[in-house]
């Protein structure tokens, strides 16, 4: 890891100023993705601007028809939140299945979404639930936010402040994890919410999170495991690695989708 200048601002304005003033600066939230790639010299920022002390990025609120999660909330906080557990239990369960205990106690929802790892869990939750990504300057719909592997709609100096999740009538997440890394090989969030029935898949595609239109239509007609059981998933564009080739991955997407529907009850 190369030397870098560490900044610990306490306000969004100071964080933005530090980031804009750096030659090759980066934000750090929980550091669960950034630090490993810095250790491997895959990232070598000149400046690291921590959001840990920035006011106003924490907290989870129940807003009636939605739940708003502060960007710096850890996965453990989301999993343990009474508001999330009560209103969107699928989201709490999903957060409880991220990584391991150490990762869940350090990694944040904002950090995960800014990084947009194609095997991360949150993208599926955001897209399926129709979440809104709130930044220091605007609100971005999930459908517009995710732009492919490690790519998002964020400007270079834009900071996520919160994520607003509409409360669905029902939702569930089913994940098949890589046995080594425990990242999603196929993670499917099914939600029946204000935006209709949505099926969002993470971990499987080289383009990041995607929706399964055929399954959404089928579930819109009859919300049952039987409705999606016969719907095949194409292996075109699926990731392929030592744990799962494209064909197996496509199969797992179908199985996880069915199981998520079953788990919706």
């Amino acid at each position: 890891m190369n030397d870098f200048t560490y900044h610990a601002p306490t306000s969004l304005d100071d964080a933005l100023a530090a980031l804009r003033g750096a030659e090759g600066g980066t934000l750090i939230a929980g550091g669960q993705s950034l630090l490993p790639i810095m250790k491997l010299n895959l990232a070598a920022p000149t400046d690291v601007v921590s959001l840990a002390g920035v006011a106003g990025l924490d907290g989870i609120s129940d807003d009636g028809d939605s739940v708003t999660v502060g960007a710096m909330c850890t996965h453990a906080q989301v999993a343990g939140s009474a508001a999330v557990q009560g209103r969107i239990p699928a989201l709490a369960a999903m957060a409880d299945g991220i990584g391991d205990a150490q990762v869940r106690n350090a990694g944040t929802i904002g950090g995960s979404l800014a990084h947009n790892d194609p095997a991360a869990d949150y993208p599926a939750a955001c897209v399926a639930l129709g979440a809104t990504i709130v930044t220091d300057r605007r609100e971005i719909a999930s459908d517009d936010y995710f732009q492919g592997m490690f790519m998002t709609a964020l400007e270079d100096d834009e900071i996520i402040t919160a994520v607003r999740f509409p409360v669905p009538a029902r939702a569930a997440y089913a994940k098949f994890a890589n046995p080594a890394s425990k990242y999603a090989v196929a993670g499917v969030m099914v939600a029946d919410g204000p935006a209709g029935v949505r099926v969002a898949v993470t971990g499987a595609s080289g383009d990041g999170v995607f929706r399964m239109a055929g399954m959404e239509a089928a579930l819109g007609g009859s919300f049952s495991a039987e409705a999606v059981a016969g719907i095949g998933v194409s292996s075109d564009g699926m990731l392929s690695d030592t744990a799962a080739g494209a064909e197996y991955r496509a199969h797992l997407v179908a199985v996880m989708a069915k199981r998520a529907v079953e788990a919706c009850g």
Partner: peptide, 11 residues
């Protein structure tokens, strides 16, 4: 070495 880390070598 394809399985060169704990990302894909399963202990």
């Amino acid at each position: 070495l394809e399985t060169g880390s704990y990302m894909n070598y399963t202990m």
